[in-house]
Amino acid sequence: MRKNYWRSNLKILSILLSLWFLVSFGFGILFSDFLDSFKIGGFKLGFWFAQQGSIYFFVILIFIYVYLMNRLDKKYEDNKGQDNTQ
């Protein structure tokens, strides 16, 4: 049970951290010049990711993490309760 919990935790972490890397280092730095060829409003897209977008995504990622972990914690607690009654 505990192993499952930890494994699900690591899965959540690796997905979210990949997204974290993608929006900041990916869109904001490595592919930034390429994205600059697109524009939204007055912003070049790469510039927007580097100075605005990455920050918004960081906030969203943390709240997705909070949501997923609370769900996982609850599942874990419920299972533990069942184990005890058996």
């Binding site: 974290w20 904001g28 730095i29 100075q51 990455s54 960081f58 943390i62 993490y65």
Partner: peptide, 21 residues
Amino acid sequence: GKDGSVYLMGWTGGYVLLALL
């Protein structure tokens, strides 16, 4: 200019690591 984004991303992105790890 755009180089300044190192501070913007650097000083906020660390919170994702902090929250997750």
